[in-house]
Nucleic acid binder design. Sequence first.
RNA 1: GUGAUUGUAGCUCAGCUGGUUAGAGCGCCAGGUUGUGGCCCUGGAGGUCGGGGGUUCGAGUCCCCUCAUUCACCCCA
Length: 425
Amino acid sequence: MAQFQAVKGAKDIFPEEVVRWHYIEGVIRSVTSLYGFSEVRTPVFEYTELFQRGIGSSTDIVGKEMFTFLPDPNGRSITLRPEMTAGVMRAFLQKNPGAGVPVHKLYYIADLFRKERPQAGRQRQFTQFGAELLGVSSPAAVAEVISMMMQVFDTLGLHGLRLRVNSLGDHEDRMRYREQLRSYLEPYHDLLDEASRERFEKNPLRILDSKNPAVQEIVAGAPKLLDCITIEGRAEFDRVLGYLSDRGIAYEVDHLLVRGLDYYGHTAFEVVSAELGAQDAIGGGGRYDALSKELGSNSEIPAVGFAVGMERLIITMEKQGLFATLCPHGPQVFVVLQDASLEDEALRIADRLRRAGITTETDLAGRSMKAQMREANRLLAGFALFVGQDEVASGSYTLRNLRTSEQLSLSIDAIPGVLLESSKP
RNA sequence: GUGAUUGUAGCUCAGCUGGUUAGAGCGCCAGGUUGUGGCCCUGGAGGUCGGGGGUUCGAGUCCCCUCAUUCACCCCA
């Protein structure tokens, strides 16, 4: 047992896996650029009030999951970001104070921190890929954002994901619905579990997405949030659905979908993967028109966005065998030296090959030739180049093709050409 | 925060109702091939059995505490 291990809920990512991240990040960068989104990077910490105001102090995230600290005795409380939307909006408002807001399209791939108990698909430090469309939140804008998210999944080859959408209406709609839901649940009050009873007082909407089967049964007959929405709101939601159908994006309207963050309103959505176990949401998002004012802007900036959990994405892709094509490639050549006295010569040759643009490795540990050859094989090197007394004396080096086992004797000057030629597809 | 689970070699794991020097596979190193890999054969190195305490003639095995892991609740990506 090592004396130190990674902090609970934090993971090391080694090269074999980093390859996967690079691949996914590449797809994200290309798809987002197709939609005209540009990357934004914001600080990993923010003043704590930003999250209290933005996410809402009644949420679990703010209530009990934040890594918060005081930088110095008289300083302001600071928190490691538990999500990106509040920070991106803050950055945007800081850069564009009070300006008439044109459309801005931003995306990010960022590390976040939440002090939860780790479990499958949940870590204390995790990464989200997300996008924020600021300045419009029209049905077309909502559809655009959902469409981009789905295109990323699609390009990665994911299948069997379910997109659930719902409309949370505006604030008044929700207040109205809240009362309807309360009066519906009233007679069942004693049948509800403890958590649901508490929500009955504080935030009855959260009872809708309870995992407790008994509660789900009760909730199944509850009035629908969608039915409390104004005609205009309902029409907008239908237009979003129309755009999705139009683009061939499958969805299901889920009346029980309520997102946990306070700033969401109107359209909300979530994508779940059957491969994930209990934490099955791979991504989610919605409209958050109210956030800008909550953060002190004097004009409301309509906005839509989503976030996708990178680790959950990777788990799902792994389960679906989508990394199979990602084959590792070794160095083009491994320089094998006969004995330690030739180290200088071997390093000179390696240096020369690298300057010629050839990926080259050599033994740095003074190991036997057999061990060096095994290493070359393990690394998936294309060739082995032998550096021995004979070669140095004659100036003619032995180059062995490790795939075909063919060997050639070549002058150093001829080697780069042969290697470059052989690595062409 | 709550519940359960697991913790033996670098890795994946065996170790029956407590009984002498703790095992396997893979990996690693060396040799079989004194200048050559992948397959095969032989040998070798490597373990405070998570940590602490207790019961016992005797504990990897039983009890308590503790730390860590994993999964679930909660919540969310």
